[in-house]
Computed example of a mutant assay.
Amino acid sequence: MSDIIVKKECEVDFSTEKAKKYILHAKADNTIKSYKADWKDFVSYCRERDVAYLAADVNTVINYVAEMADTKKVSTIVRRLSSISQAHQAADCGSPTFSFGVKAVIKGIKKTKGTLPNKKKAAVIEDIRMMVDTLGGSLTDIRDRALILIGFAGAFRRSELVAITINDLEFTRDGLTIMLKHSKTDQEGQGYKKGIPYGSNPETCPVRSLQDWLNQSKISEGAIFRSVNKSGRVGKKGLCDNTVAVIVKKLVKAAGLDERKYSGHSLRSGLITTAANRGVDERSIMKQSGHKSLTVMRSYIQDATLFKNNAATNVGL
């Protein structure tokens, strides 16, 4: 849990700093960030109304949820309830989110608003080619080409992509092996490897593109994807995950596509969608994407597969 949840609000006393450190690492960094923001919002709501936020009354949570329903998506409401629940559990308090009343309100909101997610588009292979075609020979362009192609070929999450270091790479005859030390589905840090094969087209080959970037940037240690300033100087620290989304949107726009429909996650969903559309078996897709759940993986396969083996294709229409 975050400092806001554990220390400032819940007032849970951990005996040592080492113990708190391990507890904080029980969740992914992005999850912790979300918990912080969600808990802060709930605390502000309670303070404005002079009601307790820990332990919160069931009616307080019900009213909070009902008020959010006017402006927030269902997914946001569900996530904030999860944050409230985590805060109460961290403080060894009974969570009001488990009550019948809260569950009933959520069920009613879902039926009223619907739960169809507003997903960003997958950057399928045709989009990737168009994006790469917009890039030239500047150092920034060389970096962006490598980042886009590695992100797509490895079906990486943004956080995974920016966390790759030189020591995680192994170039082989077959391509590139990348060791992931941590990921969303590997919270215990066991690590696993992803293979990035050579591409048939040198212009869109992820392995050659990364080799070019490393040679031009002269990066020999640390994070492989870094900032490049206007004078062409490479930064010392790795990019943040939000920068991946910025780069994707920039290239999408340059390619003549609607950048509002894409995000940093479009690279990951793009590989999964493209592979599924081309008949790659689900086990192989999951091996590359790192998904543990077949249901979750299938949710990434977007509209590109709607007309593949469509039941209405050969019925005589």
Rank of each mutant, 00 (worst) to 15 (best):
residue 180 L to G: 03
residue 150 I to E: 01
residue 179 M to G: 09
residue 121 K to E: 15
residue 123 A to M: 08
residue 166 I to V: 15
residue 124 V to Q: 06
residue 153 A to K: 06
residue 190 Q to G: 11
residue 183 S to M: 04
residue 184 K to T: 10
residue 127 D to N: 12
residue 186 D to K: 14
residue 179 M to Y: 04
residue 167 N to E: 15
residue 152 F to L: 04
residue 153 A to D: 11
residue 176 L to Q: 06
residue 117 P to T: 08
residue 129 R to L: 10
residue 157 R to I: 06
residue 156 F to P: 03
residue 125 I to N: 11
residue 116 L to S: 13
residue 167 N to W: 02
residue 119 K to P: 13
residue 158 R to Y: 02
residue 184 K to F: 05
residue 125 I to C: 09
residue 147 L to H: 00
residue 138 S to R: 09
residue 121 K to F: 12
residue 170 E to Y: 03
residue 153 A to Q: 08
residue 117 P to L: 14
residue 120 K to P: 05
residue 185 T to I: 10
residue 188 E to W: 11
residue 133 D to M: 12
residue 183 S to W: 08
residue 119 K to W: 04
residue 184 K to Y: 12
residue 143 R to Q: 04
residue 116 L to D: 12
residue 114 G to T: 09
residue 112 T to R: 15
residue 122 A to M: 03
residue 163 A to R: 00
residue 125 I to L: 14
residue 165 T to I: 07
residue 117 P to E: 12
residue 115 T to M: 13
residue 188 E to N: 13
residue 158 R to L: 04
residue 128 I to M: 14
residue 121 K to Y: 09
residue 151 G to C: 02
residue 148 I to E: 00
residue 113 K to N: 09
residue 145 R to Y: 13
residue 175 G to H: 04
residue 167 N to I: 06
residue 178 I to S: 02
residue 180 L to F: 05
residue 163 A to K: 00
residue 136 G to R: 12
residue 123 A to Q: 07
residue 131 M to P: 11
residue 175 G to M: 07
residue 143 R to N: 04
residue 132 V to E: 07
residue 171 F to I: 01
residue 156 F to L: 09
residue 137 G to D: 15
residue 140 T to K: 10
residue 144 D to T: 06
residue 138 S to C: 13
residue 133 D to V: 03
residue 145 R to Q: 10
residue 169 L to T: 08
residue 161 L to N: 03
residue 148 I to V: 15
residue 136 G to I: 13
residue 144 D to E: 05
residue 117 P to H: 12
residue 186 D to T: 10
residue 111 K to A: 14
residue 188 E to G: 06
residue 140 T to P: 00
residue 158 R to Q: 09
residue 176 L to K: 09
residue 116 L to Q: 12
residue 162 V to Q: 01
residue 151 G to A: 14
residue 162 V to F: 06
residue 155 A to K: 00
residue 159 S to R: 01
residue 187 Q to G: 11
residue 152 F to D: 02
residue 167 N to R: 15
residue 151 G to K: 01
residue 128 I to Y: 13
residue 149 L to E: 00
residue 144 D to P: 02
residue 171 F to T: 01
residue 141 D to H: 09
residue 124 V to H: 11
residue 184 K to W: 13
residue 156 F to V: 05
residue 155 A to W: 10
residue 117 P to Y: 08
residue 185 T to F: 08
residue 117 P to C: 14
residue 113 K to L: 15
residue 155 A to R: 04
residue 184 K to M: 12
residue 143 R to A: 07
residue 118 N to M: 12
residue 134 T to S: 10
residue 138 S to G: 08
residue 173 R to D: 15
residue 150 I to P: 00
residue 168 D to G: 09
residue 147 L to C: 02
residue 146 A to M: 05
residue 138 S to L: 11
residue 145 R to P: 05
residue 161 L to G: 04
residue 150 I to A: 03
residue 117 P to Q: 13
residue 116 L to P: 07
residue 147 L to R: 02
residue 172 T to S: 12
residue 116 L to E: 13
residue 137 G to E: 15
residue 187 Q to D: 11
residue 154 G to T: 07
residue 176 L to T: 10
residue 124 V to E: 15
residue 147 L to M: 14
